[in-house]
Write a protein that binds this DNA or RNA. Structure first.
Lengths: 179, 179
DNA sequence: CGGCTTCGGTTCGGTCATTGAACCTACCTG
DNA sequence: CAGGTAGGTTCAATGACCGAACCGAAGCCG
């Protein structure tokens, strides 16, 4: 989408946003990054995205300052992709899209979001139903619902079967535990 | 996006939503429909979208119940595409995307949104800054900002240079006035 | 040392979607 | 009848995406 003919002519901040994150897979990569996915192979396994496309998306998201590539160990050299403030700022848009999907496409009971401080439900507007505060992303806990597959094939989906605070790194089971 | 390999494997309401509205141009068509654009040639002129793609998007959006095709005159037969409740429910997601584009891409001062009842600014959360109510789409007034081109080429952009209540049909100038 | 595995990619041929231009139909207007 | 408007369809070319294969650096196993 960023190549060739794009939305440049559009005088509209929605179009500007879609120029950056409107390509296929891009918003799902950002969603996973906010869920705490950080490593190439985890994105790969969870999304089922072609490797070449994932490489391209990670590169452009890094260039756009939505993800940050950082070395987390030297031997062997390993990098991880961590979502930046610019990336977490997409959370309201993702939540609103998810809300629409839940209500108008199907996907009830898949996941819900709670305020870590008080346990209240995070509404569509982003505020906590219990205490009324506008919940920052870091204080949101994703809670799996009954509609999820209870024994998914990929380790990332398995890790997401237990409640998980957003932004914190996801710990995937070592492969040998999955057998 | 809906064709071939899609996101069906994803157990996520965000992915479900993107299956429906994630293709190129689709969200911009919905945005225009919420702005009040209803006719084929108006979408065409405002978006700069290839005709074949516009036809495809209007068809799938109609099939998905996001737009409704309705005959508004018989001779000559003319149809218009009107956004449904299912389509207007995408407004929070579009507003959130626009907010992100404004803050993180550029596009300040293009447009703002006001509460028709009290004139207060509509915040990112969708509530009115002045009176605190959660503003329904039909009570939102789009107000053009100073960053817009003051003499755009297409009649839709020209019509959007004056404040405009969302959902109400857009009246484009007859061509002979544009000369 | 040799073989095997993991991680994080790149390369490649085939397929699918998008693009812009041209064309078409139905109707109206002068 | 010529020309214009509205709302499309068709088509060749281009670009994006797909899946599978390959690759290199590093570690681990015996």
């Amino acid at each position: 989408m960023a190549l060739g003919k794009d939305y440049v002519t559009q005088e509209c901040s929605i179009a500007r946003a879609l120029e950056v994150v409107g390509e296929r897979w891009t918003l799902l990569v950002v969603r996973d990054a906010i869920y705490g996915v950080r490593r190439y192979n985890d994105f790969l396994a969870h999304l089922g995205i072609p490797r070449a496309v994932l490489s391209a998306r990670l590169r452009t998201l890094t260039e756009e300052g939505i993800l940050e590539k950082r070395r987390y160990q030297e031997t062997p050299p390993r990098d991880e992709y961590v979502v930046t403030e610019r990336g977490t700022a997409l959370w309201p848009a993702l939540r609103a899209l998810g809300q629409w999907g839940r209500e108008h496409v199907g996907g009830n009971r898949l996941r819900s979001f709670r305020h870590a401080d008080c346990g209240g439900n995070v509404e569509a507007s982003g505020t906590c139903a219990a205490c009324g505060t506008l919940v920052p992303v870091a204080d949101v806990v994703m809670v799996p619902g009954p509609g999820l597959d209870s024994a998914p094939a990929d380790p990332v989906s398995r890790a997401l079967l237990r409640p998980k605070r957003l932004l914190e790194p996801l710990e995937t089971d070592p492969v040998h535990l999955a057998h």
